[in-house]
Amino acid sequence: MKNRHTLKMKQSVIWAYIAPGVIWYAFMVIVPLCIMTGMSFFDWRSVIDNKFIGLENFKELMEDRIFKTALLNNIKIILICLVGQVGLGFIVSLLVNSKVLRFAKVHRVAIFLPVILSTVVVGFMWSIVYNNDFGIINAFLRAVGREELARSWLDNSEQVVFLLAVPLIWQYIGYNMVIFLAGLQGIAAEVLESAAIDGANALQRARYITMPLMKNTFFVVIMLCISGNMKIFDHIYIMTNGGPGSSSMVLALYAYKMSFGASRFGYANAVSVSILVISLILIAGLKLVLKEEKNE
């Protein structure tokens, strides 16, 4: 009875502990979010030059050619990264976790290394890789006598999004690998061993034992992949700045260009609000799908 009393904290003490964090979070996230949403209803061009225009910014968004391209590009990047970052990340984590792979630690470090690099560095590095004159891809093609295939890779507006996704996959595959490894290590070795004794091969074990047991890990990784790629900015800003034209434009970059390039802060905020709403819809959709699967 006495113990229960000591363990029970006073309500006021709990709030006092939570308060600093809540206040910090509110001022750093909630308040700016509210201001941003408010500003999206204004034609906000400068501190003294702004007027309330209701939903005009959002109406304009619906007809904006570049906004549509940017949204489509974000979705394309998410889909490519779901295969590349999540799919390959899972396969790599299985390999690193398996007993057949030698020097597992070396592989783990090598694959994780790009994660700690600055995105600006990665962007610069890959823009050099793709460069027409001194890029390694063209150098290789010229060395093997296939000069006709050498080109300015990032100038092709049809392929540019796929080419930009490559460094994204390259950089973050290690990040997903680490999360998957943590999940894999949570699976009891006995389960896998008994499956092996029952005659399940490596692929069957991955498909019928590992994957179902790692459903929650997958959810986390997919969610991070969607949210990360909805707000993707730095790589593309460095490598193509959304170009050529708007063929590699993404929503965050468009919001940036509209605010700091065109000084249309209200419209830029409408773009940012749309990023938030679309991300929430995608995450909610994902949750719903997983919940339905669980119920089944």
């Binding site: 570049i66 507006s157 170009g243 050529p244 034209g245 708007s246 063929s247 260009k257 509209m258 390039g261 065109a262 249309r264």
Partner: peptide, 12 residues
């Protein structure tokens, strides 16, 4: 800014 945004698309 609209000039800049469309110029490259136009050239391509």
């Amino acid at each position: 800014n609209v000039f800049y945004n469309g110029l490259q698309d136009f050239m391509a």
